[in-house]
Design a protein around this nucleic acid. Structure first.
Length: 632
DNA sequence: CTTTGATTAAACACTC
DNA sequence: GGAGTGTTTAATCAAA
């Protein structure tokens, strides 16, 4: 009661300007309050671990203050006993260097503030500390040495110490620095082992340690602080309980390349058995290990936080990039498509899931291919300013299975006036492969194009010329005189050769980046999954393209691409036993549409892809069937 | 900056 | 002679 009132007053005063003494006093009062109120209640749920840790840090700060000359403070209750023990360490940590007067004030304020506010303040404080640590390693060492201090209530402050360290790590210490840190920690522990031991670092149950600890044998009811430590300890406890378990499991992750991966260890162990021995002897459950474990926990926590931040950043970046295209250049021309409408249907369902953050709306133009190559399907051709050179690039580059690309989007391409992200050669091959007898007349090829892609229902002169050009240009297309006349077939060997050349390591690698695009990523994973499932089937020649079955098309493509990647194929061109699903990464297709199409389709492509991608071959087949039917 | 590949445009030849 | 088919060359663009 009194404390509370005192706190408020204090806080105010402290804020105003008083020196340390006032601060310290305030802290003191506050500390108690804080602890009793906040801590007591907190049974340290996993969720609150962070909170607790931060609070611990705060505690340390308080202690520091208390220790200060003027801080005779009044911690009426436990001060006497506990203080003595704790001091050394905490002091090091909280030394003036670390905590600035301002921070002190903040701390003071915190006491008055809500838990959230307190946290924020703590974080700030920690940040400062981290900086200090980074700049001055010795500080860290010292910090660590502080392993525990008897808090007012006698709880250990190890956490406080660890946290800063961890934070600093997270803050960006290099691996080497990290190691150094660990060493420091270890070393310090070793040095102070004596002192520490009494306290019993056992994190798992702070109680034990605290109890044991000279510091405050009688820590009464588990104070929040204790709770805090306890909260973290669960892990440790668990450890004890299932030590065997963990040992085995942990052993695996802690052992690699003949070296012990325990933080700061790196001991060489010839075999696993030796490692286990080492683990049990050197990293048994003791103060040091527990402390290290805590540190590691915090490191992980920090990294997770960092990860989430980076994720957010990425999302923001993606969102921004996606939006950008639209802003700068409004799509010049409207597409003419019938399909746009159709596509719109698709969008809704798919887009959301696939493109989480991307604001891309159906209308939103896609990014310029060149830049966004990574953001595959998401983009719509519409934005693409002009030509398709890029598209081919992507296509080939990524060499994704046409099937996987097209198949899922059959409906889309059929209806949308969107240029397919495939080269003419790829499309021609697809057309031929799709044919039951693997051969088509030029006119049939034309028909396939128009039937399969809305885009090729226009500018016939242009694309037909291109088709002819490609047929003649590429060796993989063989003209065969037929009774009816001439038909075109595909020389898989040649085709694969050509592909294999382009498609290689780089391609795969590139694909990865593409995954950055969320939509793409999703797509990729989905397709990958798909590939895995469907590949086996594709691998089976019989299934492959049995005459003209819709599946044939897809499979054919897919497999071709795969082959391309792998290189080895039969003359049949069909499945090479060895292609691995990995090889065929999801295509990222970004397509840019030539001037012609500008309409609204863009988003659609994504959508479609998204929708379908998840689906399986069946879907594709259906779609294919639809395509042919519809178009014809 | 150079090379490579895809696309487009166009010219030309051949056949029906 | 016109249309379709096939070949070839050149220019452009983007990516590597």
């Amino acid at each position: 009661m009194m404390q509370e009132s005192a706190n408020e007053t204090i806080s105010n005063s402290s804020m105003s300007q008083n020196g340390m003494s006032s601060l310290s006093s305030q802290l003191d009062a506050g500390s108690r309050d804080g602890r009793s109120s906040g801590e007591t209640s907190s049974e340290v749920s996993a969720v609150e671990l962070l909170h607790l840790q931060q609070q611990q840090a705060l505690q340390a700060a308080r202690q520091l203050l208390l220790q200060q000359p003027g801080s005779g403070l009044k911690s009426p209750k436990n001060n006497d006993k506990q203080r003595p023990l704790q001091v050394p360490v905490s002091v090091a940590m909280m030394s003036p260097q670390v905590i600035t007067p301002q921070q002190m004030q903040q701390i003071l304020q915190q006491q008055v503030l809500s838990p959230q506010q307190l946290q924020a303040l703590l974080q700030q404080q920690q940040a400062v500390m981290l900086q200090q640590v980074n700049t001055h390693k010795h500080t860290l060492t010292l910090t660590y040495t502080v392993p525990y201090t008897g808090a007012h209530n006698g709880s250990f402050v190890i956490d406080c110490v660890c946290k800063p360290v961890c934070d600093s790590l997270a803050a960006g210490l290099s691996p080497a620095e990290l190691q150094q840190l660990w060493k420091d920690v270890t070393g310090s522990h070793a040095m102070e082992d004596n002192g520490l031991k009494h306290s019993g670092l056992d994190l798992s149950t702070t109680n034990n340690s605290s109890t044991t600890s000279t510091s405050n044998p009688k820590a009464s009811p588990p104070i929040t602080h204790h709770g805090i430590s306890n909260g973290q300890s669960p892990v440790l406890n668990h450890r004890r309980e299932s030590s065997l378990h963990e040992e085995t499991a942990a052993a695996q992750s802690l052992y690699g390349h003949g070296v012990c991966k325990w933080p700061g260890c790196e001991s060489v162990c010839d075999d696993f058995g030796q490692f286990l021995k080492h683990l049990n002897s050197e990293h048994a459950l003791d103060d040091r290990s527990t402390a290290q474990c805590r540190v590691q926990m915090q490191v992980v926590q920090q990294l997770e936080i960092q990860l989430s931040k980076e994720r957010e950043r990425l999302q923001a970046m993606m969102a921004h990039l996606h939006m950008r295209p639209s802003e700068p250049k409004p799509s010049p021309k409207p597409l003419n498509l019938v399909s746009s409408v159709t596509m719109s249907k698709n969008l809704p369902s798919v887009s959301p899931p696939n493109l989480p953050q991307t604001p891309t709306t159906p209308t939103a133009p896609v990014t310029p291919l060149s830049q966004m190559s990574q953001v595959p399907s998401v983009l719509s051709p519409a934005n693409v300013p002009s030509m398709g050179a890029m598209r081919r690039r992507h296509t080939d580059k990524y060499s994704m299975p046409l099937s996987s690309e097209i198949a899922p989007n059959y409906e889309f391409y059929k209806n949308a006036d969107v240029r397919p992200p495939f080269t003419y050669a790829t499309l021609i091959r697809q057309a031929i492969m799709e044919a039951g007898d693997m051969q088509l007349t030029l006119n049939e090829i034309y028909s396939w194009f128009t039937r399969t892609f809305a885009y090729f229902r226009r500018n016939a002169a242009t694309w037909k010329n291109a088709v002819r050009h490609n047929l003649s240009l590429h060796k993989c297309f063989v003209r065969v005189e037929n009774v009816k006349g001439a038909v075109w077939t595909v020389d898989e060997m040649e085709y694969q050769k050509r592909r294999s050349q382009k498609i290689t390591g780089p391609t795969l690698v590139k694909n990865l980046p593409s995954s950055l695009g969320y939509g793409a990523a999703l797509n990729a994973s989905l397709q990958a999954a798909l590939a895995e499932t469907s590949l086996p089937l594709l691998g089976n020649p019989g299934l492959m393209n049995s005459a003209g079955s819709p599946t044939g098309l897809l499979q054919g493509t897919t497999h071709e691409d795969l082959n391309g990647t792998l290189d080895h194929l039969d003359t049949n061109g069909h499945s090479s036993p060895g292609y691995s699903p990995h090889t065929q990464l999801p295509p990222i297709h970004v397509k840019e549409e030539p001037l012609n199409m500008d309409d609204e389709d863009c988003p659609m492509s994504l959508v479609t892809t998204a929708n379908h991608s998840p689906e399986l071959d069946e879907d594709r087949e259906l779609e294919e069937g639809n395509l042919s039917e519809d178009l014809e």
